[in-house]
């Protein structure tokens, strides 16, 4: 009895194993009949692209990468399975594209993007000697945050190397002075703006009207001047001629004044002194004559002074 049960169990296991194997074969056949294998060869780095990475056609998941291998030193061969329903044709181009912040890990991944660059133009043929049809590869677009940061750091270092010779104390002081000047200029502009605002406030309607009248008056004056241009020219010529005459007159006057100053004035001063002396003498004479009129004929005699006797 027991052996019967064991036998039945073995039969059941074998049957299940057979059914499972058959099912796997059927699934394998069915699935392989749903996908078609393609190749891509690119000279760009395929950093982050791994087996199992998705393949999208115009943004729709149509397959996966099955293998990524180096063909030679600068060529990567990528094998991928694409659903037969996907409209892959001669116009299809594959681009290795990164999505997310990084090419690895949970913050990003790399996939193959398929796009038709032209209307579909027939199925992709298999080149001679190759097992699968090859899809043309476009330049990879693996621009993630880490590569961007790395590139930015490189660029920053290059920039710093360029700026290092310029970043000395004098340049810094000069930049500082320039900034202060800019600040002062800004203050001045503020003041100017305030003045302009004050001026605009002061220019009320009356002032504007007055300015307008003044401008009209100036226009009238300029019109009169323009109309009398010839007379003005004549006046200017006369004035120039007169100024030449006056200059000659002034020079002559200066010469005369110098002569007066140097020759006439001293003589005049001496003459004044002599007149004063004469006046005093005449006063004394008049006094003496008023006391003794006969002195005019007989003269006066002084008594002898000490030592004159």
């Amino acid at each position: 009895m027991a052996s019967n049960v064991h036998w039945k169990a073995r039969l059941l296991f074998i049957a299940l194993l057979f059914i499972g194997g058959a099912g796997a074969l059927v699934w394998n056949f069915w699935s392989s009949s749903r996908y078609r294998t393609y190749w891509i060869e690119t000279h760009d780095p395929a950093s982050g692209l791994i087996a199992g990475a998705p393949v999208e056609f115009h943004g729709v998941n149509v397959g996966q990468v099955t293998d990524v291998a180096l063909r030679d030193a600068d060529t990567v061969r990528i094998t991928l399975e694409v659903a037969k329903t996907a409209p892959v044709s001669k116009a299809t181009v594959a681009t290795i594209t990164a999505r997310g912040l990084t090419a690895w890990g949970f913050s990003g991944y790399v996939y193959i993007a398929l796009e038709n660059t032209a209307p579909a133009s027939g199925p992709l043929p298999i080149a001679p000697g190759e097992p699968y049809p090859r899809i043309a590869a476009a330049p990879a677009r693996i621009v993630t945050m880490d590569t961007m940061v790395a590139q930015s750091v490189d660029k920053l270092q290059t920039l710093m190397q360029l700026l290092e010779p310029l970043a000395n104390e004098q340049t810094v002081a000069s930049v500082k002075a320039s900034l202060e000047s800019l600040q002062m200029l800004s203050h001045s502009l503020d003041g100017l703006q305030q003045s302009a605002e004050a001026l605009a406030a002061a220019l009320d309607k009356k002032t504007v009207a007055s300015l307008k009248r003044s401008l009209e008056g100036l226009q009238q004056v300029s019109a009169i001047l323009a109309a009398n241009g010839k007379r003005l020219d004549s006046l200017i010529i006369n004035a120039e001629r007169d100024s030449r005459d006056i200059r000659a007159l002034v020079e002559t006057s200066n010469s005369t004044l110098r002569t007066l100053n140097a020759q006439v004035l001293p003589q005049f001063s001496r003459a004044i002194v002599d007149l004063e002396t004469l006046s005093r003498t005449m006063n004394g004479l008049a006094t003496r004559l008023s006391r003794n009129p006969s002195a005019l004929v007989s003269g006066t005699t002084l008594p002898p002074g000490p030592g004159e006797r």
């Binding site: 005093r280 005699t301 002084l302 008594p303 002898p304 002074g305 000490p306 004159e308």
Partner: peptide, 24 residues
């Protein structure tokens, strides 16, 4: 002053009196 603003040479023989030389 008038007493000395002259070419006559003044002398004094008595206080408060001024004379002038005849020959000088």
């Amino acid at each position: 002053g008038p007493a000395y603003d002259t070419i006559r040479i003044a002398y004094r023989e008595r206080p408060y009196q001024l004379g002038y030389f005849r020959d000088h």
